[in-house]
């Protein structure tokens, strides 16, 4: 396949996600309403608890990461869920496409929407709570966002695999899986407060390392050595594993006939 036909197929999914985002009101809620509710309520809580600026920053970083990862992951998942909801999934798998086209196209839109959410929340938290999201520097910020988006892609892959394996019964995982990941990776607290076996799980999640690295400039010494390296290495591993899981799920679905049932 030429690079051009690869790009066209990726663009097809990205363009479709954009069209759907522009026409469905729940996208506005995902992009603006819920993230703003999150950051404003958490920000007000930091005031009530009279947290120091550093502690407030710690919590607000977690809140912004939650919304950014969730929005991006949902976009990856929507690449399949749209077709499942409209019972058109077989047309997609009848066409000569690969998982990379579907996932990358939807992920790019997710990155765009994630950046919008992050910018919005950064602006609101700066204006309302004096949070300086640029304190760690542009490079660190860019690495942190990339880490968030890679985590979102990996979670999106696994959720898609679950949906293809179990059908609409598993679609609730689209909204719940990322929350589970975020609870484990220390969204509002350092992972050291987690009980021992759970802390082990946290160490297996790339976002744990990205949060750890991004919070360091706010006065929280890293709990892990080489957090960026670990974060990106784990992300690459999960992306490969997620891709394999989705491919295996699609093959199984072709075998069981679920792929057809999802189109009936």
């Amino acid at each position: 396949m030429s690079w051009r036909s690869e790009a066209v197929r990726i663009y097809a999914f990205a363009h479709r996600s954009l069209l759907m985002a522009g026409r469905n009101v729940f996208f506005v809620f995902e992009l603006v309403f819920w993230p703003l509710i999150g950051v404003v309520s958490i920000g007000l809580m930091t005031r009530f608890l009279d947290l120091s600026p550093e502690d407030s920053a710690f919590v607000l970083v977690g809140t912004m990461a939650l919304s950014t990862v969730q929005v991006c992951q949902l976009d990856v998942t929507y690449a399949l869920l749209f077709d499942i909801w409209s019972k058109s999934v077989k047309h997609q798998f009848l066409a000569p496409i690969a998982i990379r086209h579907l996932a990358l196209g939807a992920w790019l839109v997710g990155v765009g929407r994630g950046l919008v959410v992050f910018a919005l929340l950064a602006a609101v938290s700066h204006w309302a709570f004096g949070f300086n999201f640029l304190a760690p520097g542009w490079v660190t910020l860019a690495l942190f966002l990339l880490g968030c988006f890679l985590t979102a892609a990996a979670v999106g892959f696994f959720v898609c695999a679950l949906v293809v394996l179990f059908g609409t019964r598993a679609e609730v995982s689209a909204w719940s899986a990322v929350n589970l990941v975020l609870v484990l990776c220390g969204i509002y607290y350092p992972v050291s407060v987690l009980p021992e076996p759970v802390a082990g799980l946290a160490a297996a999640i790339p976002l744990t390392y990205f949060l750890d690295a991004f919070r360091a400039p706010y006065g929280f010494p890293p709990q892990f050595q080489w957090p960026w390296l670990w974060g990106f290495a784990l992300s690459a591993g999960y992306l490969a594993l997620g891709h394999w899981a989705l491919a295996a799920a699609i093959t199984r679905s072709r075998r069981t006939g679920l792929l057809l049932k999802l189109s009936e």
Binding site: V8, R9, Y11, A12, H15, R16, L19, M20, R23, N24, F82, D83, W85, S86, K87, S88, H91, Q92, A95, P96, I97, H101, S263
Partner: peptide, 18 residues
């Protein structure tokens, strides 16, 4: 069936790209 909120030209363009 196809995606409910897309229009015929958009549906054909999407699948054409695939």
């Amino acid at each position: 069936s196809f995606l409910w909120s897309l229009r015929p030209g958009e549906i054909l363009t999407f699948y054409g790209r695939l």
